[in-house]
Structure formats: C-alpha cells, structure tokens
C-alpha cells in the first residue's frame, strides 16, 4: 500500500496542502478530482517521492518516511515501482518516441524490445508515428508515448496527472479501459482527472480536494450524491461545461 498521512506542504507563505491523508491500494483505482490550484499535483509529487512535505508521513509497502526527515535519514525513492505520468509528459526531445519508451529499459540493462512493447504499440495504435521525435508528434501521440513508457516499467503504483487531457474520445476510451485492466492486474493507480464519467465507472475510490484539503471522499457514488456543498458546486460546474 502507498499511504500518505497528515501531509502538509507550504510554498513560501502559501499553504498548499493541509493535513491530507490518503492511501492507494494495489489493484485499486483512486480518482483525485478538484478545481485547479488545490494541491493535487503537489500531493501526487509527494506520493511519487519527488517532493518532501513539511510534515506528515509517506509509507510504501511497510517502509515509512516521517517528515521532516531526520538529518541522517535519506529517502530511498522506489522508482519505477512507483512511477508518474505528468500532464506535461516530459519526453526527452533528442530521442524518438520509441527511444523514449525503450530507454528506461535499456538503461537498466533490460530487454528493450519485450513482447509487451509490441502489444502496447498496437493497442494504442502507435506504430505509424513511433519513430517521430516528440516535437513532430501531436500532444495526443506524445501522451500515449508517455503512458506506454510508464506501463512498460511494470510499476506497482501508477500516478497519473491529467493524462487524457489532450486525447480524443477514442484514445481516451482506450486509455481508460487499459487503466481498468491494469487495476485488475494488481497495479495501484491514482489518477488526477476531470473525467467524471471515468471516475464514476472505473474508480474504486473518489477523492475531492479543494483549498489544499480533502473535502469529501468515498466510493464513486459521491459523484452522484455529494454530501458536501463544495463538491456539489464543483460537479455542477463540470456538468455545465461538459
């Protein structure tokens, strides 16, 4: 289990996260929703061991890091057991999409052409553009490459930050069905999303954040019958927009 407890984080004088606790279980999908600027990405970075909170603790498979760390303590970041696909994708610009996908394997001395690679390329319909450089590919193509790069790492916990934001409906549907499949294969997934339908259909748990704290959490049904006024407002805005 990947668990964060009582996480607080400030940037200068702005408190971004206020006593936030959540857990990601293997084989479960957790959807994190909320307005922009509410600390969702910061929380994701903390869970990915890319940032340290001011206080609180993060536990992964029984190993707990309590923050602030003691001077002698060092975080052994469990990458790529925990991996992230960011909204900005972070593809290396000097490599083709295929090289972006396979570099993490070859750099770690692993087979860079495993059967799963061809399977994923076919599934995401990538064979016709996989030799392009990131700047020659569309955002949707880059998003697929970033996701395949993460999936090939066989992570145990996959953290996704708005990865379907630039995809068309068909590609979004493929990715969402893949996420469901990954969940059923035992991968713990946390996804920041604005896709309410996906959150409702695929997620085992939905967490709504606003103002740096968790306002409401529960099963997907909280999206249909929200208890908190703030979540109701957010849902009505999203429904109006969509």
């Amino acid at each position: 289990m990947l668990e964060a407890k009582n996480i607080s984080k400030s940037y200068e004088n702005t408190k971004v996260l206020k006593d936030v606790s959540l857990s990601i279980e293997r084989g479960k999908i957790c959807a994190l929703i909320g307005p922009s600027g509410t600390g969702k990405t910061t929380l994701l970075k903390i869970l990915a061991f890319l940032e340290q909170p001011d206080s609180g603790s993060v536990t992964i498979d029984g190993i707990t890091y309590k923050y602030p760390l003691e001077k002698s303590q060092k975080v052994e970041a469990p990458w790529p057991k925990v991996t992230v696909v960011f909204q900005q994708l972070f593809l290396w610009p000097h490599l083709t999409l295929l090289q972006n996908i396979t570099l993490p394997l070859s750099a770690r001395g692993l087979d860079d052409n495993p059967p799963r690679l061809q399977e994923l390329l076919k599934l995401f319909d990538m064979n016709h553009f996989v030799y392009r450089y990131p700047n020659q590919a569309s955002i949707g193509q880059r998003q697929r490459a970033a996701l395949v790069r993460a999936l090939l790492l066989n992570p145990e916990y996959l953290l996704l930050d708005e990865i379907t934001s630039s995809l068309d409906i068909e590609q979004t549907a493929i990715i969402l069905s893949q996420l469901k499949k990954l969940g059923s294969q035992g991968i713990g997934i946390l996804t920041i999303t604005h896709l309410l339908q996906f959150a409702h259909e695929a997620a085992d748990k939905v967490i709504f954040m606003a103002g740096g704290e968790i306002v409401e959490e529960g099963g997907p049904n909280i999206l249909l019958t929200p208890k908190h006024e703030r979540l109701s407002q957010f849902l009505s805005v999203l429904k109006t927009v969509s």
Binding site: A48, L50, A77, W79, P80, K81, V82, T83, V84, F86, Q88, F90, L91, W92, P93, H94, L103, P104, A107, R108, R149, A150, L153
Partner: peptide
C-alpha cells in the same frame, strides 16, 4: 529539470541520466 525528473521516475540511475539524457541534450 523535467527531463531529469522523468528519468528519475523511470528508474534510470544518475549515471545513465547524465550519459543518455543530460550530455546529449
């Protein structure tokens, strides 16, 4: 820095990050 972050979360070591990502770029 995002290219280094991407390498980190992909489990690429610092040495290989320098060799395959930082140096060529």
């Amino acid at each position: 820095n995002q290219y280094i972050v991407a390498a980190k979360v992909c489990g690429i070591s610092s040495y290989h990050t320098v060799l395959y990502i930082q140096l060529p770029i």
